[in-house]
Amino acid sequence: MAVSFKNLIRACASVGLTLCAAAAAQSRAMPLDKQHTRLGFELSTRWGQTLEGQFPRYDGVVNVLPDGRHQVSLRMYTADVQIADHERYAKWARGSAFFDSKRWPEVVFVSHPYDAATLIGGGQIAGELVIRGIRRPETLTVEPAQCLRPALDCDVVLSGAVRRSDYEMDSLKLAINDRVVFLLHARLEPPGDTP
Rank of each mutant, 00 (worst) to 15 (best):
L172S: 04
R132T: 13
A24Y: 05
P113I: 10
E128S: 11
Y89C: 03
A21F: 04
F99A: 05
A97N: 13
V81I: 15
E106C: 03
Q26G: 00
D59W: 04
A11T: 10
P191L: 13
F5Q: 13
D193H: 05
L183W: 00
W92V: 02
Q82A: 14
S4F: 07
W47I: 05
F182N: 00
G123N: 05
T118K: 14
G68Q: 11
G121F: 01
E143G: 02
E168Q: 15
G53E: 09
P105V: 11
G127A: 06
R28M: 07
E106A: 13
S101M: 06
L119S: 11
R38I: 08
A93S: 14
A21R: 12
G95C: 06
Q124P: 01
D170Q: 04
S27R: 10
Y89N: 09
A186H: 00
D178F: 00
P113F: 06
A24W: 03
A90W: 06
L43Y: 01
Y58R: 00
C154F: 10
T50G: 06
Y167N: 01
R163M: 10
W47G: 02
F55W: 08
P190Y: 03
V61H: 01
T139I: 04
D153P: 05
A161T: 04
Q35H: 08
A97T: 02
A79P: 03
R46L: 09
D155S: 14
L140I: 02
E42S: 05
L172N: 04
R46S: 11
W47M: 09
E87N: 14
T50Y: 10
G192Y: 11
L129Q: 07
H112L: 09
S96L: 06
S101V: 06
A24C: 14
G60A: 06
V180S: 00
I125Q: 02
Y58T: 02
A126V: 08
I131R: 01
F182E: 00
A90P: 09
V62R: 00
I9C: 06
F55T: 13
D80G: 12
R46N: 07
R163L: 14
D155P: 12
V108T: 15
P144Q: 12
N7I: 08
W92C: 03
V62Y: 00
A84K: 15
D178H: 00
H36S: 09
